[in-house]
Simulated assay, not measured.
Amino acid sequence: MQTNLLQNILRTILGFFMTLAGVGHLTFQRQEFLAQVPRWLPQDPTFMDFVVLSSGVVEISFGLALLFWAKERIRVGILLSIFFVLIFPGNISQYTNGISAFGLDTDTKRLIRLFFQPVLILWALYSTGALRYLLEKSKNR
């Protein structure tokens, strides 16, 4: 299943975004990402740091896979969309606990941020061809 030029451009942008975000987890945005660790998880600093670092490694892996693993782009898109669903509780926690990070310093900004997660999910699915693949698969059932 081929992807078109727009999908390839969007996949490349998302790949760079994911790689940069992952590097941020490991370095210059580490404190910001610590603020997004859900409050219902253990608040032990070592555990929280592990969550941030490991999710950073996962994000770098997804970013590089989007950029360089074209053969598996549909699987990568599906897995990345699942990852976006799995990290959504961190965004909800940031909103419900009023935690300022990444310039989200008001409840309104934190609430608006929640509506961007579905956009990321669709971006991952569309840009990799996974959305078309899943729609066609569901039609053939």
Rank of each mutant, 00 (worst) to 15 (best):
L10W: 06
Q36V: 13
N140V: 12
L131E: 03
G90M: 06
A101C: 09
Q94H: 07
P42D: 12
G98D: 01
V85G: 10
G56K: 03
T46Y: 15
F47I: 12
V85A: 15
T46M: 14
F115M: 08
L134M: 14
L122R: 10
L111P: 01
T19V: 11
S100Q: 07
V85P: 04
V57T: 09
I112D: 03
Y95G: 05
Q36R: 14
F50M: 14
I60C: 07
T46A: 15
P89C: 02
D105M: 04
A70M: 01
F16K: 05
L122I: 12
M48S: 15
K71M: 02
L120Q: 03
L53C: 09
E136D: 11
H25S: 07
T106N: 07
G22D: 02
A35H: 09
G90T: 07
D105W: 08
L20M: 05
W123S: 06
S54E: 09
L111K: 05
P89N: 06
V37S: 09
S100I: 00
R75S: 13
A101G: 01
T46W: 14
Q29C: 00
S81T: 09
I82M: 08
D107A: 02
E59M: 14
S100H: 07
R39C: 07
E72V: 00
L86R: 01
F102G: 06
F62G: 07
K109A: 14
G63F: 02
T12W: 11
S127W: 08
F50S: 15
